[in-house]
Each structure stands twice: as structure tokens, then as C-alpha cells.
């Protein structure tokens, strides 16, 4: 069996040191080694985006990376984005606009949307739709996901006040 590799990663602000098999995918490291099951696996061909997390501030598909590649990196998962009572504007947008139904695509969709707004704070509808090309949702028809991202963009630009009840 090939040697295990020692890695150090910071996930949601917490530093972790682990010995991992080289073939361990980042998504399985997050879900199984660290117990962060908010990041999901929806496919085995790198198409669905359910596994999207932020690696050094950029959205990536954690199913298309080995954990060893994240050595020395800073990761943010859905669990580290915001918590109930202190939601990120994108999380708030998904709640306010009913941007989710079964919730399975949601963590990846939210992480991709945050990445979009980091790069382009006031996207047009077409830009939102293009930026979400790597995230599949079978429930919502994307209608309210688009509205959720628009809500978050407005909120981050200070155009919307505090949400009603959170």
C-alpha cells in the first residue's frame, strides 16, 4: 500500500493535521475524516457541483481534488459560511426567496453563488445563470435560486435591511 501523506489544512478557521491515503478525495476527507457532511456528493463525473467548497477563497469541486492537494490550504465549507442567527447574505437569500426544496444541491449552490458575488458583486440575470452552470438542481427550476442570488447581491450592496426573522 502506498505511503500515507501528512497534511495540514485549515477548514472553517480550524487547523487540522491528518495522515491520509493519497487517493482520498477532498470531499471524502471533509465528510468522513472531519465529519463535515454539509458538502454533498451528487455525481461521479465532476458535473453536479453538490461538492463545491472554497479553496483559498475560490469555489472548487471537492470531488475533483485529492485531499493531499489541499495541504497547506485554507478551506471554507457551508458549515463555515454562516450559522443560524448569523447567516451569510447568500444563505439568507436562499431562505427568503425559497431557493431550495430538497436542499441537496443547496450547499454547493450557495458556495458557488458566494464565489460569483465575490468576483462580480452586481451580476445580471444572465451572468448569474452562466456562473451556476456547474451546479445542477433538480427541484427548483433555478427560478428562486436566481432570485436568491439577486437578493444577496442587493443585500451585500446595502440595498436591503435586516431580514424579518433571523
Amino acid at each position: 500500500m502506498p505511503d500515507k501523506v501528512q497534511i495540514k489544512v485549515t477548514v472553517n478557521g480550524v487547523e487540522h493535521h491528518n495522515e491520509v491515503e493519497p487517493r482520498l478525495l477532498l470531499v471524502h476527507y471533509l465528510r468522513e475524516t472531519l465529519g463535515l457532511t454539509g458538502t454533498h456528493v451528487g455525481c461521479d463525473t465532476s458535473q453536479c457541483g453538490a461538492c463545491t467548497v472554497h479553496l483559498d477563497g475560490q469555489a472548487v469541486k471537492s470531488c475533483t481534488m485529492f485531499a493531499v492537494q489541499a495541504d497547506g490550504c485554507n478551506l471554507t465549507t457551508i458549515e463555515g459560511l454562516g450559522s443560524a442567527g448569523n447567516l451569510h447574505p447568500v444563505q439568507e437569500g436562499f431562505w427568503e426567496m425559497h431557493g431550495l426544496q430538497c436542499g441537496f444541491c443547496t450547499p454547493g449552490m450557495i458556495m458557488a453563488a458566494v464565489d460569483l458575488l465575490n468576483k462580480n458583486p452586481q451580476p445580471s440575470e444572465a451572468e448569474i445563470r452562466h456562473a451556476l452552470e456547474g451546479n445542477l438542481c433538480r427541484c427548483t427550476g433555478y427560478h428562486n435560486i436566481v432570485r436568491a442570488v439577486q437578493y444577496a447581491a442587493d443585500k451585500m450592496a446595502g440595498k436591503i435591511g435586516a431580514a424579518a426573522d433571523d
Partner: peptide, 9 residues
Amino acid sequence: IGDPMVRAK
């Protein structure tokens, strides 16, 4: 090409 996550890597 692909999508933003593909383009990140």
C-alpha cells in the same frame, strides 16, 4: 470552458 469551479483548477 466548463464552469467557474473547473476554471479555478
